[in-house]
Structures are given as structure tokens and as C-alpha cells.
Amino acid sequence: MTTARDLFIIAIDKEPSRPVGQGDLSLALAGAEVIDLLGDEAIELDGDRMVPARQPTTDDQLLGQAAASLHRQVPYERVEDWLWRRGRDLSTAYLTALEESGQLTRQRRSRLSFSADQMTLADSPARRRAMSRWASDEPVLAALAAVVGIHGEQTSDSPSPVDDAVTTVVAAVHDAVMELEAVRQRRAIENAAFSNIWRGA
């Protein structure tokens, strides 16, 4: 399993302080992939640019796809640009992967309900691993989850990522999520103004 898969499981299992948007989660998943590629020494960071180092050793299909899509020519891709490119619909890709592996099922809340299907996690080794990382306040997972509004019971002195490269990635994810939220707010204001015009306000 990977940090991205663990993060996705946590996002489904835990009640966030605010609803987690698919766009926010996709950006965080893309950041988690970068961190896993760093941990596998498949890439290095030169400032905020992702420099391919060697072929990854992972057998995870989605992380393998991430590695295959790296820009391998100078100038190498900036982390922020990667988040937006790789993150497009990435939460849907992880949802599909977990469903296909039997780790996630959809259940209707009611026969007469027209609401969206409820996601149910299987009691699998993958889920137990993710929950163990979460319960231990594992700093990388906790930091990525916090960016999208999922908080555990960390104390004020809970650890935070100390590796400079990981800190750079988490900061980039935070900035991208904030940028996405600013876009949402701007669109909401524009839509409200347009509605007011039609109502003669």
C-alpha cells in the first residue's frame, strides 16, 4: 500500500471538519504520490522541481502510472504543476482501484433514497494499516489529511514532517488547495452576481 491509498481510506473512514471536495482530495493524493516516489528514491527534489532518479520498485499500479508520467527532460516539472496535472480526477482513479480490489463497496442508504451511494470500507489489511498509521499520528499522513480538513486527536506537540523535501511537497499541496478554494469562492460570487442581474436586483 501507499501513502495515497492510506490517505484515501482515511478520507472515507473519518468524519472531516468540513466536507472534503474531490478536487482537494485529488491534489492531496497527487502530493502523497510525490512523497512515496521520494521515499522510493525514484525522484529527488531540486528546489521545487521533481528530478527522476531511477525506476521505482513499487508494484502499486497507480504509483507506477505516476512514475511513468514524470517529465524526464530539463526543465523538470515543478511540484505545483505536477499536482494540477496529475491530480485531475485522481480521487476517482483511487476510488475505482479500491472498488476493483474489493476493499470498497457501494451501498444504497435506502431503497427509496435518491442520495448518492454510501462508501463502505472492507475490514482488510489495507484498512488496518491505514488506521494504524492514523492512530500513531504518522506525520506525513497526518499533515496531508490536515490540508483537506481531516484532523485526528493530535496534541499540540504532534510531530510534523521534518524532511525538507516532504515539507516542500506538503506546502505545495496546501497552496494548491487554497488556490482551488479561492477559485470556488470567486465563481460563487460571480454566479450570485449573475443571478441578481436576472432577478433585477
Rank of each mutant, 00 (worst) to 15 (best):
T2S: 08
T3G: 13
R5G: 00
R5N: 01
L7P: 03
I9Q: 00
I9P: 00
A11T: 05
A11N: 05
A11E: 01
D13P: 05
K14F: 10
S17R: 13
R18H: 12
V20F: 06
G21I: 02
G23Y: 02
D24V: 04
L25C: 06
S26Y: 04
L27G: 01
G31M: 07
G31H: 10
A32M: 06
D36W: 06
L37K: 06
D40F: 08
A42E: 04
E44G: 11
D46K: 10
A53C: 10
A53P: 04
Q55T: 15
Q55C: 10
P56S: 12
P56I: 09
T57H: 14
T58D: 09
T58N: 05
D59H: 15
D60W: 05
D60T: 04
Q61T: 12
L63N: 00
G64E: 03
G64C: 05
A67Y: 04
A67D: 07
R72T: 12
P75R: 03
P75K: 02
Y76T: 02
Y76W: 09
E77C: 07
R78L: 11
D81G: 04
R85I: 10
R88P: 01
D89W: 11
L90W: 03
T92H: 15
A93L: 07
A93S: 13
L95V: 11
T96I: 15
A97C: 08
L98R: 05
G102L: 08
Q103N: 13
Q103C: 05
Q103D: 11
R106E: 14
R106M: 11
R106P: 06
Q107D: 13
S110Y: 11
S110Q: 14
L112Q: 12
A116F: 15
D117R: 10
D117N: 13
T120H: 15
A122F: 04
A126S: 13
A130L: 01
S132G: 06
W134T: 02
A135K: 05
S136F: 01
E138S: 04
E138Y: 04
L141H: 00
A142K: 01
A143Q: 01
L144Y: 07
A145F: 02
A146Y: 02
V148G: 02
G149F: 08
G149I: 07
I150N: 00
H151P: 01
H151A: 07
G152K: 06
S158F: 11
S158T: 12
P159G: 10
S160N: 12
V162Y: 11
D163W: 04
D164Q: 13
D164F: 12
A165M: 08
A172W: 00
V173N: 00
H174K: 13
M178A: 15
E181I: 12
E181V: 11
R184P: 04
A192L: 10
S195R: 14
S195C: 10
I197C: 00
W198V: 15
W198M: 14
R199P: 02
G200P: 05
G200W: 11
A201K: 12
